[in-house]
């Protein structure tokens, strides 16, 4: 009899996928877990209580991250949508698209290191506004390229039809373009939110440690070998994307085809 091995492999894969989530929550609940103990000597909510007591500023970091990511997502989605229209209706749209790929493909941390001088001169170094501007610079090309497929002949003919029927630009946007692009705008908003939410290198350069987002906190705890708080920060970092996934998978994974 031939054994069907697929269910075993799939069960193992599910366990492997869930393992990081379970392990990080477990580690965030642990304390005094010394080598070679397989289980920690303390399991409880001590770390979480401390965090919610704001002793380590983790809760503040969570809200800073949230504020930065929401700002980046709003600015980049809005500007990406509006500016992409000009770019993708332009006769030289292919060359302009190529130009948008340069900042998109470059490592954000290297980009930030080369831009830091300008941020320093503009007074945007080491503050939240600077981090938002820097993250916007890397999220904008993504948002712009995201809308490349939206501006097609069909949409153009809708716009022409509105104009023929006497509609103005405001009406074209509010009655036709925005309702048509609603779904894409939402996906782009959440994806740019995640670009900002997951960002570490660029934030560490432009924020110079003064703007402590959750990713910066994770790294600080790793350096301090405080793995329990590190795991707790990781839990806070993973929580919003999992919630987004629960509501709609497309918020986290852009359907490319």
């Amino acid at each position: 009899m031939r054994i069907n091995w697929k269910p075993f492999v799939l069960s193992l894969a599910v366990l492997l996928i869930l393992f990081p989530f379970v392990y990080l929550v477990f580690l965030s609940l642990a304390s005094e877990w010394r080598f070679p103990d397989v289980l920690p000597s303390y399991i409880g909510f001590k770390n979480w209580v401390t965090v919610f007591g704001s002793e380590t500023g983790l809760l503040q970091s969570f809200f800073s991250s949230l504020l930065i990511s929401l700002s980046v997502a709003i600015f980049s989605t809005t500007s990406g949508f509006l500016i992409s229209k000009a770019v993708f209706y332009h006769p030289k749209k292919r060359t302009l698209t190529l130009l948008a790929y340069f900042p998109y493909i470059l490592a954000p941390v290297v980009f930030a290191a080369c831009l830091s001088f300008f941020f320093l001169k503009m007074g945007l170094f080491g503050n939240m506004t600077g981090v938002v501007v820097a993250q916007f610079i890397i999220a904008f090309p993504y948002a712009l390229l995201f809308f490349s497929s939206f501006w097609n002949e069909k949409v153009k003919s809708y716009e022409d039809l509105v104009a023929t029927l006497g509609g103005n630009k405001w009406q074209t946007y509010t009655k036709v373009l925005l309702p048509l692009a609603k779904g894409l705008l939402l996906i782009c908003f959440f994806q740019t939110f995640l670009i900002s939410w997951f960002e570490y290198g660029l934030t560490s350069i432009i924020g110079i440690g003064k703007v402590q987002t959750l990713t910066i906190k994770v790294f600080l705890f790793i350096k301090e070998t405080n793995y329990y708080y590190g795991a707790l920060s990781c839990c806070l970092l993973i929580f919003p994307p999992v919630v987004l996934l629960y509501f709609n998978k497309r918020y986290v994974f852009k359907k490319l085809v």
Binding site: L24, Y200, T215, Y227, A231, C234, L237, I238, L245, F253
Partner: peptide, 23 residues
């Protein structure tokens, strides 16, 4: 399974690095 396979996308690089180190 169609939900589960999306879950790894919710983990950023810094968390993956931390988790790998812990393992």
């Amino acid at each position: 399974l169609s939900f589960i396979i999306y879950l790894p996308l919710a983990i950023p690089g810094i968390v993956t690095g931390f988790f790998t180190f812990q393992l």
